Computed example of a mutant assay.
Amino acid sequence: MLTALKVRLYPNKEQQIALAKNFGCCRFVWNHYLNKTNTQYQEIGKGLSYCDMAKDLTQLKKHEDFLWLQEASSSALQQSLRNLEAAFRNFFEHRAKFPKFKSKHKKQSVRYPAGFSIKKNGIQLPKLGIVKAVISRKISGKIKSVTVSKDSTDKYFAAMLLEIEDIPTTKEGKISGVDLGLNSLVTVFDGETIYKVEPIKPTRKYAK
């Protein structure tokens, strides 16, 4: 079973700069390949798959004009491509609207699918080190991913996706049904026998 836990982050100045680069790189990758997929779809009627985009991204990061992409976490950039592929799939399966270009003036986020761990004083993230965090409860289960976001008030948060064991349910006793009626105040059925509770005097009085 999957559940989520959101905690407040307190990155230092250097970590804030690094996060800004990660936000910007992931936003660029999303917008770049959204545009590239749209263009290819218009030309040949087929968009780019995740594998197509990932191969192209590897070459793009080596280009002298885009070397700055190497400053971001590679796993976070790849996650942006997976998110884009999922957004297109949801659109074509009529579960969501067509993917939109991301703006730097709105909420910023980056998802880390790997390379993180919980430390005593916070959360260790790729290329950031340990970011101070306020974790209110003990974390149980396996952390599948960590999404770091920055809201309009410049506050930072981390949403952790946790995989925990399903809580077993016990089925004891009989199945009961309760019905409120007119002729009888309450009718109870336990799966075998029907019990009726007759209206008490105040109930009869005010029912009239």
Rank of each mutant, 00 (worst) to 15 (best):
C26F: 05
V178P: 04
A158M: 07
Q42K: 15
N22F: 06
Q16H: 07
R95H: 05
G47K: 06
H105M: 15
I44C: 12
D65Q: 05
T169N: 06
T39R: 10
Y10T: 14
A96C: 01
D151E: 14
A96R: 03
C25K: 01
K97E: 12
F88P: 05
K102F: 01
S73F: 06
V7F: 08
S49I: 06
Y10F: 14
E165A: 11
L9V: 07
T58I: 06
K208S: 13
T169I: 14
I139T: 04
D56M: 05
E85P: 02
H32V: 02
S145F: 04
S140R: 12
L180D: 12
K61E: 11
K107Q: 06
G141W: 14
V29Y: 03
N183D: 15
S176E: 13
M53D: 01
V188C: 10
L185H: 13
F28Y: 14
K46A: 15
P11E: 12
A18D: 02
K97G: 12
K104E: 00
G177A: 13
K104L: 00
E64Y: 11
T193S: 04
Y10L: 14
V146G: 03
K142H: 13
G115C: 13
D56V: 03
F66N: 12
Q59P: 01
A76H: 03
K13L: 09
D65I: 00
S117K: 15
R89C: 11
K55S: 11
N83T: 15
Y50S: 07
Y156L: 02
K97T: 07
H63A: 09
L81M: 10
K201S: 10
S49L: 09
N31R: 02
Q42R: 12
S152P: 00
M53E: 01
L185V: 14
K201D: 10
V29T: 07
I175A: 13
L69N: 07
K46P: 12
Q15L: 03
A4F: 09
Y156C: 02
Q70V: 00
Q42L: 06
L162E: 04
L185W: 14
Q40H: 05
T153C: 08
R89D: 13
L128M: 09
S117P: 08
F23V: 10
V131C: 01
S152R: 08
L9E: 09
L162I: 08
I200T: 08
R111T: 08
G122D: 08
K6L: 00
K104C: 01
E192I: 08
A159N: 10
